[in-house]
Design a protein around this nucleic acid. Structure first.
Lengths: 195, 195
DNA sequence: ATTATAACCGACCGGTTGGTTTGTTGTAAA
DNA sequence: TTTACAACAAACCAACCGGTCGGTTATAAT
């Protein structure tokens, strides 16, 4: 009964990596089974089907990972500086594998949102959570920012630019390109401040 | 001999739509055959395999469509205004289907760049073409723009933001969100001008 | 010790995939 | 009219897919 949870977690971990590399639809159960060194019966004991396994990966792996990545950047005293530092360190420390595979959340969103309603709703919920996280922390320091800002709009733009550059660097497999766009994103973010 | 080219074109058109809707890997040959009302022999007479068919769609459909979409926006007298008009009309006239399916080029790039080298190289070439198209036309009016600009960097940022917002609106299936981010992108673009 | 059930195994299933092969038809040059 | 080849048609193939199911083992309560 104790190892059961370990098996479940192993399946989630392996599956999340495999989805990150190949996408959800192109990830076959057989490769998951091989990597986990378990049988098909074991997998179907823990998850009803492939779809439910995908949902579990998104909810238990991707969403927490993604939100906890952004959270410290905006909750610190100066979210403007926090975001810039975040993007810079991201561009600097990103491994070549991460450049090639892209952002897991972005990948899965692109692939599954228009195909599977369950994924779409989960993605939507996560995006809204992220938007309020960013926009509310910007509003927190609104006295330092320009008066003409629509915080929700700005937040969505920042996330869009991030995902877009992650896409671009992934599709061209060019890390320098990611750094370039991140640098310009920082220029934009700092332009939100007064003066 | 005359209808042969028509058949080939029909296959390309149907396949490009199907890839746009479902992605390349999830598009099966059988659905293409059904929609074209042809046999498998006919398809394999015109294309060596599914991969080559995909390459042909990218080169003969997607790339010209994508470049001809951007080109008039930046080649007019004022590329800054041209880009803003372009994005605004795009956000306004975009059909719900286009919102849901996203940008075909962006979709295919995301899906195939890290999986298939042939796709990656074609995508890379197209992105570089687009970048020079935008950056050279910005440089053309450099006397109207800020002096601290890196034109290539700015161009990549614009394209990234565009793809990112197209991604976001696709994954959330929210047209208003696309308009929102496009509006903020125009704000950014206009900030490139002097004063 | 018995019993119940969670945890897991692996053979099997129908269906689909991309791809091959053999055969037919239309057309155009010789 | 014969010949040659482009342009298809359709049956067929092995491989793989997600999913099912009957059976086995381990564990924990009774």
């Amino acid at each position: 009964m104790r190892e059961a949870e370990q098996t479940r977690q192993l399946i989630l971990d392996v599956t999340s990596e495999e989805i990150h590399k190949n996408g959800f639809q192109a990830t076959s159960l057989s490769t998951i089974l091989t990597q986990c060194n378990i049988s098909k019966g074991a997998l179907y004991h823990h998850f009803a089907n492939k779809q439910e396994l995908g949902y579990a990966v998104f909810e238990e792996i991707y969403t927490p990972m993604f939100l906890s990545m952004w959270e410290p950047a905006v909750t610190q005293e100066d979210p403007i500086q926090g975001l810039c530092d975040f993007f810079e360190s991201l561009a600097k420390d990103m491994s070549c594998e991460e450049v090639i595979c892209g952002c897991p959340v972005n990948n899965l969103s692109q692939e599954m949102a228009c195909v599977d309603e369950g994924f779409r709703l989960r993605i939507l919920a996560m995006q809204q959570k992220l938007n309020t996280l960013i926009s509310e922390n910007l509003r927190r320091v609104s006295e330092q920012l320009r008066s003409d800002l629509d915080y929700s709009q700005v937040s969505y733009f920042i996330v869009s630019a991030f995902h877009g550059s992650s896409s671009l660097s992934k599709s061209t497999q060019n890390k320098a390109l990611f750094q370039t766009v991140m640098a310009e994103l920082c220029v934009y973010i700092k332009s939100l401040q007064k003066n």
